[in-house]
Nucleic acid binder design. Structure first.
Lengths: 166, 166
DNA sequence: GGGCATTGCGCAATTC
DNA sequence: TGAATTGCGCAATGCC
């Protein structure tokens, strides 16, 4: 129905642009999404020194304004608006995903750390056992077959220092 | 090329408010870059159904239009624009930080996993040593003090199976 | 050069 | 009452 954009370019002077925009909007008494639709009026490019000075630049601006009411323009705008919306949705989703990932990684980290703790404890127990046994051997008899000595166990560096091997 | 046809779902409708805006600005060239300075034309508040039928709300619209060129309005806008910019910068920074955090956590994860691997290996070696020793003992002599048996070592489940604990 | 995707920005409504 | 957020449209720009 009523196509409202039938406005003429309405002037376009050197410094500063004059644009007339007519807004005809439906209220549609929206309840939830009350985001009012609004239009924007462009300003071409921030060119044109207002302080009047030299001559008018090559002024590339010809239609720029004129095709505001063009059908094609409107279509392009609509398409872009759609694209923008899409892009923003994606961006937002990505941010959410990233946050989610942080949480997951944090959980995983805790799990791993718990496991490390467990393994360390196991290791420690085993070493103690070993040492104890070694002492017993030293106290009572001489190694029957010579298998384990305390030195074999104590040079393990599990204090986080990474060896260059492999 | 896809769907666009002639639909204009949002904005641009009938009945509503008409706003005329005249632009004559020498736009102080924006900050960085050449982001064109543009103005927007508002739409007032979607109030008062032009169709006029029944209950016309207590027309709340007072100036709304008039104060577009008000000094105070301009100041408010400027302040808000600043706030918006700030907010967006923060938001962006936060997103960046989150991403960074993901990377850090990933690294940490790898480190932890490597450590687990190392510990597991150590444990495995110790256990083997233990078993060997136990065999030796069994072959040659009877346990002098009775300290270690194979059973003590073999019930450790470090085969990656996750126990249900927490 | 056309077309979608991104991005910076301003406006207005809403939240705090 | 004012700052902070948020949704949205416009235009410039990036990228096929």
């Amino acid at each position: 129905m009523s196509k409202q954009s039938q406005q003429k370019p309405t002037s376009t002077d050197q410094n500063g642009v004059s644009v007339i925009q007519i807004q005809a909007h439906s209220s549609t008494s929206n309840s939830t999404g009350a985001t009012a639709g609004l239009q924007q009026v462009p300003q071409l490019v921030p060119v044109s020194p207002g302080g009047g000075g030299k001559a008018t630049p090559p002024s590339k601006m010809k239609k720029t304004i004129a095709d505001k009411d063009s059908d094609e323009y409107r279509q392009r705008r609509e398409r872009n608006n759609l694209a923008v919306k899409k892009s923003r949705m994606r961006s937002k989703q990505k941010a959410l995903d990233t946050q989610q990932r942080v949480n997951e990684l944090k959980e995983e980290n805790e799990r791993l750390e718990a496991k490390i703790k467990l393994l360390s404890k196991e290791l420690s127990v085993l070493k103690d056992l070993f040492l104890e046994h070694a002492h017993n051997l030293a106290d009572n008899v001489q190694p029957p077959t010579a298998a384990i000595t305390a030195g074999d166990l104590c040079n393990n560096n599990n204090s986080g220092s990474n060896n260059g091997s492999q």
